[in-house]
Design a protein around this nucleic acid. Structure first.
Lengths: 348, 348
DNA sequence: TATTTTTACGAAACCGATGTAATTGAATTA
DNA sequence: TAATTCAATTACATCGGTTTCGTAAAAATA
């Protein structure tokens, strides 16, 4: 910023003191007399002197800011995670820098490089769907960068990880379909690269098995960008609809897949839930004013953000001790509305 | 970041050169022989040397990053604006730092201070609804900070401003109600502090006047936080419903007011559009799968972001010349769906 | 060969802060 | 009065780069 900001030198010159004296006075050092200190403090307050954090960063190698890398902020779930992160960060005097990977590994690496080289004290990251190689992150970690993974976690890295109980949520959602009498329950998952896809798939499968249902791979579809584009979701749905015995229920694994599936079914004039019932992960607020109102799994987004930030702060604060990394699993909330109601045809 | 990163000194020592030579070699100075240069470049590439941008910032007073301050990212419109900003910023090697004011003037000032003191090359800001005093921004501007206002603009500051054609959009939306035979058209606006509220209100009024309708203040309500909370929207709606002659149409002024009004009317079992028609500003994607599908005004969010960033770059690049500030007004798109259909009761 | 020019590199200052070590001046003690 | 102590202040190195200026050696010129 080419700005004419007041520096410590200016303050020193104006008061006829040395920079070191001013520095110490401002930091409240015992070495400085009360008279001088108050003179400096007054002047600084009056002239609105703000120390240059860049210089501080250079000196200390810390920046009081942390980076957040995620696929996109255009997602109510991530927005709430950010709110959670922010609330804790601000409390501790940290600023957050958000960058979006848009599900691109390349962009993600670029963003992370940019952030780290720019001095961040820590990194909160939910990797892109394309990310399979965590070496760049592990390298940075080895160089001393504090990393906490949230939402999309991986066992390829050893660090704090915060995620929802995806297995349980998927299990319960699938079981609910079964209890309500649905027969052919399909699943549209996100990218098989990310753990949440696997966990949710496993929950789905386990629920089927526990209820003596067969697992039929024809009913399992993937969206390799977790529902980033309409096309990939539409493709999965077309595939399902073209089956000899199309599903009578779909369980969708991500926020964007869920809403896009809803769109798509509507566009194809499929009656929900009469022809196909629908339930999925989503934190969208509009889920209960759309018609039919959408049964859904909500993730504790705000809490996830808070926890992730707190865990990161832990890593930042205790500088040397080798931490025992934790993986924290948060409970989700299942809400059942019209889209999963079993409507029994009444013949008059 | 307390990280053990390779510095220029390390490179110099390893190659038996001075730091200045390395610096010049890396920047491709003519002073350095081809042999030395390639030696340095090779070594740097191999060891993955990355110059410390903090040090650069300190030297140059520029940071290649720009701040974005807005009320919240939990809003599809602002998300798209950010995408637009990002697309241009990345093209030019700039990073963006986002912070949210959550409609609080205090938080906004805090964020801006933090950003500016942290060295940003420019600021893109859509002020909070609470913001009436622009002195802090004007002071920063005078100190050399480049500022561009977007979405919520004000004439209290002289700078580049990018906004939608709010007047025209409001005019057309109101006129559409009139053409469709609605009689008592209410308006729920955002905070009277912000220009967009005024412009949209004026458009609404002008459309009424041009069609020989009276302007009745009873039918005009404000949400002082632009629909941040359910309560303030609900309050406005209750007021309208309790009128002796409740409105048969509502025109809402902001994304959040629009969706919350929709919610609220649904909750109160008001039939849309049979009892009350609804149209408003919103960029929400779900607007056409909700029931009834929602007539709406869409703002060119992505373009707004691009333009704002481009204008900011202009300011940053031409360092000295006094710029002639522009206010750019973008056209909106009106889309009409079920929520504004005039349903004529058919008596069998 | 002596002188000038060019080439290639290095020493040191600088950006704005911090903190250690040195220094000043005054008060206290011998 | 001289020596010692101590409080208050300052000089200076440091963080990691960039850049100005100076200079040695090589090349070109006289």
């Amino acid at each position: 910023m080419k700005r004419t900001q007041l520096t410590m030198r200016d303050v020193a010159k104006a008061l006829g003191l040395s920079v070191s004296t001013v520095s110490k006075a401002l930091s409240g050092s015992y070495e400085i007399s009360a008279a001088t200190r108050s003179k400096v403090l007054e002047f600084a307050a009056e002239k609105d002197y703000v120390p240059n954090p860049i210089a501080k960063s250079l000196k200390y190698g810390e920046s009081k800011s942390i980076g957040v890398v995620l696929s996109t902020v255009d997602n109510h779930f991530y927005c709430k995670v950010i709110d959670g992160i922010e609330s804790v960060a601000h409390q501790h005097g940290y600023n957050i820098i958000i960058s979006q990977s848009h599900e691109s590994y390349e962009r993600e690496v670029l963003n992370v490089k940019n952030l780290t080289s720019r001095a961040i004290d820590g990194l909160l990251i939910s990797p892109s769907t394309e990310t399979v190689d965590y070496d760049f992150l592990k390298n940075l970690q080895q160089e001393g960068l504090k990393v906490v993974l949230f939402d999309r976690i991986t066992n390829k890295m050893d660090t704090h990880k915060i995620a929802s109980d995806n297995f349980q949520a998927a299990y319960k959602a699938t079981a609910h379909f079964i209890e309500n009498g649905f027969k052919r329950i399909a699943h549209i998952g996100g990218s098989p690269n990310v753990s949440i896809t696997i966990d949710r798939l496993e929950g789905y499968k386990k629920a089927l098995l526990d209820n003596n249902r067969d697992i039929d791979d024809k009913y399992i579809q993937y969206c390799h960008h977790s529902g980033k584009t309409v096309e990939e979701v539409e493709e999965a749905i077309i595939h399902l609809l073209n089956l000899k015995y199309p599903p009578d229920a779909i369980f969708t694994a991500t926020d964007r897949i869920t809403t896009k599936t809803f769109f798509s079914l509507k566009r194809q004039k499929i009656m929900i839930p009469q022809q196909i019932a629908l339930m999925g992960f989503t934190n969208t607020q509009l889920a209960d004013v759309i018609s039919p109102s959408l049964s859904r799994i909500r993730q504790p987004a705000f809490e996830m953000g808070q926890l992730a930030m707190n865990k990161l702060l832990e890593l930042i604060k205790r500088k040397k001790v080798v931490p025992d990394y934790e993986t924290i699993v948060l409970n989700t909330t299942l809400e059942f509305y019209e889209s999963t109601e079993k409507i029994v045809a009444v013949h008059l």
